[in-house]
Design a protein around this nucleic acid. Structure first.
Length: 369
RNA sequence: GCGUCGGCUGGGCACUGGCUGAGCCCAAGGGUCUGUAAAACCCCCGCAUCGCUGUGCAGGUUCAAUUCCUGCCCGACGCA
């Protein structure tokens, strides 16, 4: 058994748990930092550790293209290669079926990509996606899925769901590595019947964890929130549930309320590079002129290195001067903010006051800063 | 002092004897980002609601000058 998940506390549908992996323990609910190309952009493993990151992501498509799964395997696997010795989850490339739709074609056998780097062909089948992830040596691998955008006609949505189920079975059959867990992915868009069909089929395949995919692909946050709980409650309570790619802090609270345990999102790092900071009072855009002479920290009360050491005026200066330290310091703070938020979420669940905690935070984020 | 090239918006430029100088780039300012083709992209970029005002100054040529000519002023470069 590659992972062991224990449910420790529940507070209505919200769950607080503990997950052991081959590379260490994880307290849930958890936010996982996205490190697509074997790096959480702009941050070192030491910095990630320091702000409380427990798990990072890698990406099958991107790493297979460059530098190649065999090379990473030859160099000791993704943990050693990247210098991150904690838990790693690898995404299967299913999201690239969505985001690189212009340069791929898909059928029941496989998805074939035209490389965004040099145009070379890369075929991602359920079997090859598993083989690549086994070479990478992640603690948690994901099934290859088809992630259709919001607004996909019902007929095709059904095709995508059935293909995702079929592929999940092939992934499970292909998977060999005993020190790696393989999670199934529930698709179905905002169609609750399709979500239920997918969840039920995947449940029969008996995965050690289940993901909700196909969210934040164009639907409104309200539509997403409406589909979360009905889908999550169809999944076995004793397995971790992972809401893929979500999201903003308020979306994560909605996910926790729906019974989700694992989250990941590019927002803290991408927006950090683009000068936007997440704080308890809402988002702060560090390029704005109002910070030019502001000696206050980015977020008062935040204990991260960025907030302890630097002023808003300095961060503002770094972004206007296009210095690389700006994106690093803001990414660091944003990841710290997400990790701190999740620690507070876990405590609130343990203490049986998650609903109140969520309400207070949502109200603060919605107030004008 | 002479010569050359220039004077348009915070800076840098393009074009034009009439119907387009309110066009571009940069800076500044504002915004967007959800399993990362993103240290990216979008808007704005004279002022304001329609609309208004803007081509260094003074003359000249012309039906008409921001454009061509003369002088002056200012700037850069070159030569003394």
């Amino acid at each position: 058994m590659a992972i062991r998940f224990q449910l420790l506390h529940t507070d209505q549908a919200a769950r607080c748990g503990h997950m052991d992996t081959p590379h260490g323990p994880v307290e849930t609910p958890v936010f996982m930092a996205v490190g697509t190309q074997g790096t959480v952009k702009g941050l070192t493993p030491a910095q990630l550790r320091d702000v409380g990151v427990q798990v990072i992501l890698g990406n099958t498509y991107h790493l297979a293209l460059r530098p190649g799964a065999d090379l990473i395997a030859d160099l000791g696997g993704l943990h050693r290669f990247s210098g991150w010795d904690g838990p790693i989850l690898t995404d299967s490339g299913g999201f690239q079926v969505y985001s690189l739709a212009q340069s791929r074609r898909i059928d029941d056998r496989a998805a074939v990509f035209r490389s965004h780097i040099d145009g070379a062909l890369l075929e991602l089948s359920p079997e090859s996606a598993i083989a690549i992830q086994e070479k990478l040596g992640s603690d948690i691998a994901m099934c290859l899925d088809e992630c259709p955008p919001f607004g996909t006609p019902p007929d095709y949505l059904r095709v995508a769901v059935r293909r995702t189920i079929h592929w999940a079975e092939r992934c499970r059959d292909a998977h060999r590595r005993p020190d790696q867990a393989l999670f199934g992915i529930v698709q179905g868009g905002t169609d609750l019947a399709l979500r239920a069909e997918c969840a039920e089929a995947l449940r029969r395949l008996d995965f050690p964890g289940y993901a909700l995919g196909g969210f934040s692909v164009g639907e409104t946050p309200e539509q997403m929130a409406a589909a979360l709980a009905p889908t999550a409650e169809l999944l076995p309570a004793d397995r971790p549930r992972y809401l893929m790619g979500v999201g903003r802090p308020q979306d994560i609270l909605a996910g926790v309320a729906a019974g989700i345990d694992l989250f990941d999102c590019v927002l803290p790092t991408r927006n950090g590079r683009n000068a936007q900071a997440f704080t308890a009072e809402g988002v702060v855009r560090m390029r704005n002129a109002r910070h030019r002479r502001d000696s206050a920290p980015l977020e008062s009360g935040c204990g991260c290195y960025t907030c302890v050491r630097f002023s808003r005026a300095y961060l503002h200066h770094l972004f206007l001067a296009e210095e690389m330290l700006g994106p690093t310091l803001l990414s660091l703070h944003n990841v710290a903010f997400y990790c701190r938020l999740m620690a507070e979420v876990r405590r609130a669940i343990r203490e049986g006051r998650f609903a109140e905690f969520a309400a207070v935070n949502l109200a603060r984020w919605q107030a004008p800063a």
